[in-house]
Amino acid sequence: MKVLHIAHREFVSFFSTPTGWLVMGGYLFLTGVFWTYMVENYVLQSQDLVYNPAAASLLNLTDYLLAPFYGNCATVLVMVLPAVSMRSFSEEFRQHTMELLATSPVSTAEVVAGKFLGALGFVTVMLTVSLYQPISLAQWGDPEIGVLFGSYLGMLLLSSLVLSLGLLISSFTSSQLVALVLTFAACLVLMVLDWGASSPDAWNARLALSSHLSDLMSGAVKLSDVAYFLLGSATCLFATHQRLESFRWS
Protein backbone atom coordinates (compact mmCIF):
# COMPACT_ATOMS: atom_id res chain seq x y z
CA MET A 1 0.00 0.00 0.00
CA LYS A 2 2.74 2.43 0.94
CA VAL A 3 4.34 1.78 -2.44
CA LEU A 4 1.17 3.13 -4.00
CA HIS A 5 1.16 6.22 -1.79
CA ILE A 6 4.72 7.00 -2.84
CA ALA A 7 3.91 6.26 -6.47
CA HIS A 8 0.81 8.44 -6.28
CA ARG A 9 2.73 11.41 -4.84
CA GLU A 10 5.37 11.00 -7.51
CA PHE A 11 2.77 10.73 -10.26
CA VAL A 12 0.84 13.80 -9.11
CA SER A 13 4.03 15.84 -8.76
CA PHE A 14 4.63 15.56 -12.51
CA PHE A 15 1.47 17.53 -13.04
CA SER A 16 2.35 20.22 -10.51
CA THR A 17 5.75 20.99 -12.01
CA PRO A 18 6.57 22.54 -15.37
CA THR A 19 8.87 19.64 -16.20
CA GLY A 20 5.99 17.18 -16.37
CA TRP A 21 3.94 19.34 -18.68
CA LEU A 22 6.94 20.19 -20.83
CA VAL A 23 7.81 16.53 -21.28
CA MET A 24 4.26 15.53 -22.13
CA GLY A 25 3.69 18.55 -24.33
CA GLY A 26 7.03 18.10 -26.05
CA TYR A 27 6.50 14.43 -26.74
CA LEU A 28 2.95 14.82 -27.99
CA PHE A 29 3.84 17.85 -30.11
CA LEU A 30 6.86 16.24 -31.76
CA THR A 31 5.16 12.92 -32.45
CA GLY A 32 2.05 14.82 -33.57
CA VAL A 33 4.11 16.70 -36.14
CA PHE A 34 5.69 13.46 -37.33
CA TRP A 35 2.30 11.81 -37.51
CA THR A 36 0.68 14.58 -39.55
CA TYR A 37 3.60 14.78 -41.93
CA MET A 38 3.94 11.04 -42.38
CA VAL A 39 0.24 10.36 -42.83
CA GLU A 40 0.04 13.16 -45.39
CA ASN A 41 3.01 11.71 -47.21
CA TYR A 42 1.45 8.26 -47.22
CA VAL A 43 -1.81 9.61 -48.62
CA LEU A 44 0.06 11.45 -51.40
CA GLN A 45 2.02 8.34 -52.27
CA SER A 46 -1.06 6.17 -52.44
CA GLN A 47 -2.77 8.76 -54.70
CA ASP A 48 0.22 8.68 -57.01
CA LEU A 49 -0.08 4.93 -57.24
CA VAL A 50 -3.78 4.83 -58.18
CA TYR A 51 -2.92 3.98 -61.79
CA ASN A 52 -0.09 1.64 -60.88
CA PRO A 53 -1.73 -1.37 -59.20
CA ALA A 54 1.48 -3.41 -59.19
CA ALA A 55 3.38 -0.85 -57.11
CA ALA A 56 0.29 -0.05 -55.03
CA SER A 57 0.10 -3.60 -53.79
CA LEU A 58 3.56 -3.14 -52.28
CA LEU A 59 2.56 -0.02 -50.40
CA ASN A 60 1.18 -0.95 -47.01
CA LEU A 61 0.48 0.85 -43.75
CA THR A 62 2.87 -1.22 -41.69
CA ASP A 63 6.03 -0.79 -43.72
CA TYR A 64 5.48 2.71 -45.04
CA LEU A 65 3.78 4.41 -42.12
CA LEU A 66 3.63 2.61 -38.77
CA ALA A 67 7.12 1.12 -38.60
CA PRO A 68 8.99 4.32 -39.46
CA PHE A 69 6.63 6.42 -37.34
CA TYR A 70 7.02 4.33 -34.21
CA GLY A 71 10.75 4.20 -34.80
CA ASN A 72 10.72 7.99 -34.58
CA CYS A 73 8.50 7.87 -31.50
CA ALA A 74 10.98 5.62 -29.72
CA THR A 75 13.78 8.07 -30.49
CA VAL A 76 11.73 10.99 -29.16
CA LEU A 77 10.92 8.94 -26.05
CA VAL A 78 14.58 8.31 -25.35
CA MET A 79 15.12 12.05 -25.67
CA VAL A 80 12.40 13.08 -23.21
CA LEU A 81 12.46 10.24 -20.66
CA PRO A 82 15.66 11.36 -18.91
CA ALA A 83 13.76 14.54 -18.03
CA VAL A 84 11.11 12.42 -16.31
CA SER A 85 13.53 10.49 -14.14
CA MET A 86 15.99 13.29 -13.43
CA ARG A 87 14.15 14.70 -10.44
CA SER A 88 13.26 11.43 -8.74
CA PHE A 89 16.08 11.29 -6.21
CA SER A 90 18.09 14.41 -7.06
CA GLU A 91 15.23 16.62 -5.98
CA GLU A 92 14.73 14.60 -2.79
CA PHE A 93 18.37 15.17 -1.93
CA ARG A 94 18.25 18.84 -2.74
CA GLN A 95 15.10 19.49 -0.72
CA HIS A 96 16.25 17.18 2.10
CA THR A 97 13.04 15.21 1.75
CA MET A 98 14.93 11.93 1.52
CA GLU A 99 15.17 12.26 5.30
CA LEU A 100 11.39 12.00 5.51
CA LEU A 101 11.31 8.77 3.53
CA ALA A 102 14.33 7.39 5.37
CA THR A 103 12.76 7.94 8.78
CA SER A 104 9.23 6.83 7.92
CA PRO A 105 8.21 3.21 8.38
CA VAL A 106 8.76 2.34 4.72
CA SER A 107 11.52 0.19 3.29
CA THR A 108 14.01 1.38 0.71
CA ALA A 109 12.55 -1.15 -1.71
CA GLU A 110 9.13 0.46 -1.32
CA VAL A 111 10.63 3.89 -1.98
CA VAL A 112 12.41 2.73 -5.15
CA ALA A 113 9.37 0.81 -6.41
CA GLY A 114 7.08 3.75 -5.66
CA LYS A 115 9.29 6.20 -7.51
CA PHE A 116 9.56 3.86 -10.49
CA LEU A 117 5.84 3.16 -10.68
CA GLY A 118 4.98 6.85 -10.35
CA ALA A 119 7.25 7.77 -13.25
CA LEU A 120 6.10 4.83 -15.36
CA GLY A 121 2.49 5.82 -14.61
CA PHE A 122 3.16 9.29 -15.95
CA VAL A 123 4.70 7.90 -19.14
CA THR A 124 1.77 5.51 -19.50
CA VAL A 125 -0.64 8.43 -19.42
CA MET A 126 1.47 10.15 -22.06
CA LEU A 127 1.48 7.08 -24.30
CA THR A 128 -2.25 6.59 -23.75
CA VAL A 129 -2.94 10.11 -24.97
CA SER A 130 -0.86 9.34 -28.07
CA LEU A 131 -3.25 6.48 -28.90
CA TYR A 132 -5.36 9.04 -30.75
CA GLN A 133 -2.97 8.46 -33.65
CA PRO A 134 -3.68 4.78 -34.38
CA ILE A 135 -7.34 5.21 -33.40
CA SER A 136 -7.82 7.97 -35.95
CA LEU A 137 -6.02 5.86 -38.52
CA ALA A 138 -8.39 2.95 -37.92
CA GLN A 139 -11.26 5.19 -39.10
CA TRP A 140 -9.90 5.18 -42.65
CA GLY A 141 -7.46 2.34 -42.91
CA ASP A 142 -6.82 -1.08 -41.50
CA PRO A 143 -3.59 -0.96 -39.46
CA GLU A 144 -2.11 -4.23 -38.27
CA ILE A 145 -3.04 -4.71 -34.64
CA GLY A 146 0.04 -6.84 -33.98
CA VAL A 147 2.36 -4.07 -35.07
CA LEU A 148 0.53 -1.50 -32.94
CA PHE A 149 0.57 -3.79 -29.93
CA GLY A 150 4.26 -4.53 -30.42
CA SER A 151 5.08 -0.86 -30.83
CA TYR A 152 3.30 0.19 -27.66
CA LEU A 153 4.70 -2.75 -25.70
CA GLY A 154 8.15 -1.84 -27.01
CA MET A 155 7.75 1.79 -25.99
CA LEU A 156 6.54 0.80 -22.51
CA LEU A 157 9.45 -1.58 -22.02
CA LEU A 158 11.84 1.03 -23.36
CA SER A 159 10.39 3.55 -20.90
CA SER A 160 10.79 1.11 -18.06
CA LEU A 161 14.48 0.60 -18.88
CA VAL A 162 15.30 4.27 -19.41
CA LEU A 163 13.42 5.34 -16.27
CA SER A 164 15.17 2.73 -14.12
CA LEU A 165 18.50 3.82 -15.50
CA GLY A 166 17.56 7.44 -14.82
CA LEU A 167 16.47 6.58 -11.27
CA LEU A 168 19.82 4.95 -10.64
CA ILE A 169 21.75 7.90 -12.01
CA SER A 170 19.68 10.44 -10.11
CA SER A 171 20.46 8.59 -6.87
CA PHE A 172 24.07 9.69 -7.33
CA THR A 173 23.58 13.43 -7.63
CA SER A 174 21.55 16.21 -6.11
CA SER A 175 21.61 18.09 -9.41
CA GLN A 176 18.75 17.43 -11.80
CA LEU A 177 20.80 18.74 -14.68
CA VAL A 178 23.65 16.32 -14.06
CA ALA A 179 21.14 13.46 -13.80
CA LEU A 180 19.51 14.55 -17.07
CA VAL A 181 22.74 14.80 -19.03
CA LEU A 182 24.22 11.55 -17.71
CA THR A 183 21.01 9.59 -18.28
CA PHE A 184 20.76 10.89 -21.81
CA ALA A 185 24.41 10.04 -22.44
CA ALA A 186 23.89 6.53 -21.08
CA CYS A 187 20.87 6.03 -23.36
CA LEU A 188 22.86 7.26 -26.32
CA VAL A 189 25.59 4.75 -25.58
CA LEU A 190 23.00 1.97 -25.35
CA MET A 191 21.52 3.02 -28.67
CA VAL A 192 24.72 3.22 -30.69
CA LEU A 193 26.43 0.27 -29.07
CA ASP A 194 25.80 -1.97 -32.07
CA TRP A 195 27.23 0.41 -34.64
CA GLY A 196 30.08 -1.39 -36.30
CA ALA A 197 29.22 -4.67 -34.63
CA SER A 198 30.96 -7.52 -36.43
CA SER A 199 27.87 -9.72 -36.41
CA PRO A 200 24.34 -9.68 -34.95
CA ASP A 201 25.63 -12.08 -32.31
CA ALA A 202 28.51 -9.90 -31.15
CA TRP A 203 28.30 -8.83 -27.49
CA ASN A 204 27.74 -5.18 -28.33
CA ALA A 205 24.93 -5.96 -30.75
CA ARG A 206 23.21 -8.09 -28.12
CA LEU A 207 23.55 -5.40 -25.50
CA ALA A 208 22.33 -2.55 -27.69
CA LEU A 209 18.84 -1.15 -27.30
CA SER A 210 17.97 -0.87 -30.94
CA SER A 211 18.27 -4.52 -31.94
CA HIS A 212 15.85 -5.60 -29.20
CA LEU A 213 13.47 -2.77 -29.88
CA SER A 214 13.16 -3.16 -33.66
CA ASP A 215 11.90 -6.77 -33.52
CA LEU A 216 9.39 -5.91 -30.81
CA MET A 217 8.08 -2.97 -32.75
CA SER A 218 7.61 -4.97 -35.90
CA GLY A 219 5.14 -7.04 -33.93
CA ALA A 220 7.40 -10.01 -33.26
CA VAL A 221 7.24 -10.26 -29.49
CA LYS A 222 10.07 -12.54 -28.41
CA LEU A 223 10.79 -13.58 -24.86
CA SER A 224 14.47 -12.71 -25.24
CA ASP A 225 13.69 -9.11 -26.15
CA VAL A 226 11.14 -8.68 -23.38
CA ALA A 227 13.60 -10.25 -20.94
CA TYR A 228 16.31 -7.81 -22.06
CA PHE A 229 14.20 -4.84 -21.01
CA LEU A 230 12.81 -6.38 -17.84
CA LEU A 231 16.18 -7.65 -16.62
CA GLY A 232 17.80 -4.33 -17.48
CA SER A 233 15.16 -2.46 -15.48
CA ALA A 234 15.40 -4.85 -12.55
CA THR A 235 19.19 -4.53 -12.46
CA CYS A 236 19.03 -0.74 -12.41
CA LEU A 237 16.33 -0.70 -9.73
CA PHE A 238 18.27 -3.13 -7.58
CA ALA A 239 21.41 -1.00 -7.95
CA THR A 240 19.36 2.07 -6.95
CA HIS A 241 18.18 0.22 -3.86
CA GLN A 242 21.74 -0.66 -2.90
CA ARG A 243 22.86 2.90 -3.51
CA LEU A 244 20.18 4.30 -1.20
CA GLU A 245 20.91 1.69 1.47
CA SER A 246 24.56 2.69 1.35
CA PHE A 247 23.69 6.12 2.77
CA ARG A 248 23.03 4.50 6.11
CA TRP A 249 26.61 3.31 6.19
CA SER A 250 28.37 6.39 4.93
Partner: peptide, 11 residues
Protein backbone atom coordinates in the same frame (compact mmCIF):
# COMPACT_ATOMS: atom_id res chain seq x y z
CA UNK B 1 12.09 16.78 12.56
CA UNK B 2 15.49 17.09 10.87
CA UNK B 3 17.52 20.26 10.95
CA UNK B 4 16.00 21.42 7.69
CA UNK B 5 12.34 20.39 7.52
CA UNK B 6 11.79 17.77 4.78
CA UNK B 7 9.10 19.53 2.76
CA UNK B 8 7.84 18.93 -0.77
CA UNK B 9 7.44 22.57 -1.65
CA UNK B 10 5.27 21.89 -4.70
CA UNK B 11 2.52 20.41 -2.52
Amino acid sequence: LPESPPLYVDM
